[in-house]
Design a protein around this nucleic acid. Structure first.
Lengths: 197, 197
DNA sequence: TACATATTGGAGTGTTCACTCCAGATCTGC
DNA sequence: GCAGATCTGGAGTGAACACTCCAATATGTA
């Protein structure tokens, strides 16, 4: 749709504005006028580049959902600690994206079945990733046990992430560390031993 | 505002409709027409009983937020297990209310500072309740440790609740049990001992 | 029963919204 | 530097929205 350089630049400007506004006002709170004003662009320019307001918002939303799954290529190398650390970093450093993700996954996911299903799918994938990491570090772990471990650990991380986004003073990293130590004691012991080496 | 019997009945009918619709469509998705249609009532009747659409929605929202804190009077008697059980029951049995609560707390709380602050306050109160219960059951527990325990346990419960609402087949009770055993081992040991008596 | 007051439905109002249209400006390959 | 395509802002459109207004009716009281 955009073919000239200026068009592509405008597109980026609009997406930045949309990202900022969606994170501030929510997926439902953002208006076309707000986007075009923030981007310094007329409505005509917007519709020259996007089919609808929804299309621009969806682009941002997809970006947010995919951002929770870091490095989908590098399989089998992460430890549970790495995964936890990455999740904490996503929640505390990713700025608007984490906000958008949670708003979307929880706020919209509970209302819109399409988004709910998408969120659940992405959650399952993450559980699997965590499960694999746990069994890699503690091979004596039963598959069901590892999966239950992953499920509770991820649930805890999600809850901590919500608190962290609501309360800027919350020390998510410390709580996540503790959560890992408690929910995955055998794995964490192995980790401690490795550290002490 | 309502003085006659019929008026009070209509008020209840409108609130029921609002509760149902807010849980299905979300706080932002519900329209006045949807409410009045669902309640079988004209717009005039609605505004005879409520100041605004917001007022009716707020009534439902307040109800949802208060429902998370069960039995605020009976202090000092609940065990951690009781509190966990109550939280699980709220998420799995409370029907629309739990949906509304999470939508609101997370979806809106991340966007609307007023709601965010309110959610955080209610969260702090719950953390305190959990902390007290933990120290009651294991008096050797340090206050900071107990609070960290409560924070991680509640975060986990919240995360599990989200999954439970997104996935009807999810066994929240089992995961919550496991979470309690892991995050509060000393308390849970005491509990097991009591059970074995 | 008679009267004051509450309740009712729904047509009407003003506002906000996403989106269309298009004339003129700008861009880029040749 | 010309031609044809792309990009631009913003006035204009219709639909959806929350809310008002009011004549007709129902309700409770004495």
């Amino acid at each position: 749709m955009a073919r000239y350089r200026v068009g592509l630049e405008t597109r980026e400007r609009i997406l930045s504005a949309t990202r900022r506004l969606v994170s501030e006002l929510g997926v439902e709170g953002v208006t076309l006028k707000a986007i075009t004003d923030e981007a310094g662009v007329g409505a005509g320019s917007f519709y020259n580049l996007f089919d609808s307001k929804e299309a621009a918002v969806f682009e941002i939303v997809r970006e947010a959902i995919e951002a929770v799954d870091p490095d989908p290529a590098g399989e089998g190398t992460d430890t549970l600690g790495d995964l936890v650390e990455a999740f904490v970093a996503f929640m505390t450093d990713a700025g608007p994206i984490a906000r958008i993700y949670l708003q979307l996954a929880v706020g919209r996911g509970l209302v819109d079945p399409t988004i709910g299903a998408r969120t659940l799918r992405s959650h399952r994938r993450r559980v699997e990733r965590f499960t694999d990491a746990a069994r890699r570090q503690d091979p004596t772990l039963d598959r069901d046990d590892a999966e239950a471990l992953a499920e509770t650990l991820l649930a805890g991380l999600t809850g901590l992430g919500i608190t962290a986004l609501l309360d800027p003073g919350f020390d998510m990293a410390a709580h996540a560390e503790r959560l890992l130590a408690r929910t995955a004691p055998s794995v964490d012991a192995a980790r401690g031993a490795e550290r002490g080496r």
